[in-house]
């Protein structure tokens, strides 16, 4: 069983990137980017999530090969829930 052990230096590096991204997202929110404010905020959040998943949750080096498909499935069905619900709400006039 050859198991991958990442070094603490990598973890600290990831942690620093997460902190930097947190600062960036707070700063970016103060700048008027129009509709892009939300997009930037969510992109940064997703970037942070990807870092956490790949390195802190060890998905990059996982020996269990079903994990990536499982994550993909979760995201796909979450997308279905949001998208198909919005198919109703986005095409409807609100009171």
């Amino acid at each position: 069983m050859s198991e991958h052990i990442s070094s603490p230096r990598l973890y600290v590096g990831i942690w620093l990137s997460l902190m930097v991204l947190t600062v960036v997202t707070v700063v970016a929110a103060q700048i008027d980017l129009g509709a892009f404010n939300t997009i930037v905020a969510l992109t940064i959040a997703s970037l942070k999530a990807v870092l956490v998943v790949l390195f802190f949750m060890h998905v990059k080096y996982a020996h269990e090969r079903m994990i990536k498909p499982v994550i993909a499935a979760a995201l796909f069905f979450l997308f279905l829930l949001l998208a198909l619900s919005m198919a109703d709400f986005a095409t409807r006039l609100w009171i």
């Binding site: 198909l84 198919a87 109703d88 709400f89 095409t91 409807r92």
Partner: peptide
């Protein structure tokens, strides 16, 4: 529900 969503579903 919206009619469009009705058609899709």
């Amino acid at each position: 529900m919206s009619l469009y969503a009705g058609l899709i579903f």
